[in-house]
């Protein structure tokens, strides 16, 4: 593999690793979502440094120019990451739905039990919104 592209690959993969690691260290990124990123970055870094392995992979799957194999592998990691996030979003959607339902049911039960505060709050909220929507009042 040509030295320039190898250097670019190494710098990019190492940079990705450092950025993700730093985000985890600052608690901006949860470990559970960082693991796949770190694993991807390490795998790409390893292949960029150990170019012999990359060349063997490239020739095995019929890629003439080894850096293209690196791009292909990186693309594979990106797909896995995206799928992972789609799963996470689906799970969050389900959980949010349940929370919204539980909250609404609790609020209704509380207002039925005669908690004045909750009822006043609900009424105030209704009035606020009714005031914002003058056309809906006869």
């Amino acid at each position: 593999m040509e030295l320039r592209i190898q250097l670019v690959s190494i710098v990019a993969a190492a940079g990705l690793f450092v950025v993700v690691f730093e985000m985890v260290r600052r608690r901006r990124l949860l470990e559970r979502y960082a693991l796949l990123w770190l694993f991807s970055a390490l795998a790409l870094l390893g292949l960029a440094i150990w170019s012999g392995l990359l060349e063997r992979i490239a020739s095995t799957i019929g890629i003439i120019y080894p850096p293209n194999a690196l791009f292909l592998i990186a693309f594979g990691f990106v797909l896995v990451l995206l799928l992972h996030f789609s799963l996470a979003v689906s799970r969050l959607t389900d959980q949010t739905k349940m929370l919204a339902q539980r909250l609404a049911l609790l609020e209704e039960r509380q207002s039925r039990a005669g908690h004045d505060v909750a009822r006043e709050r609900a009424d105030a909220r209704d009035e606020d919104e009714a005031a914002l929507e003058p056309s809906s009042r006869p």
């Binding site: 609900a122 009424d123 209704d126 009035e127 919104e129 009714a130 929507e133 809906s136 009042r137």
Partner: peptide, 10 residues
């Protein structure tokens, strides 16, 4: 709802 549905129903 963003209109007065809840108040009207109540």
């Amino acid at each position: 709802s963003t209109d007065a549905t809840a108040a009207a129903a109540r």
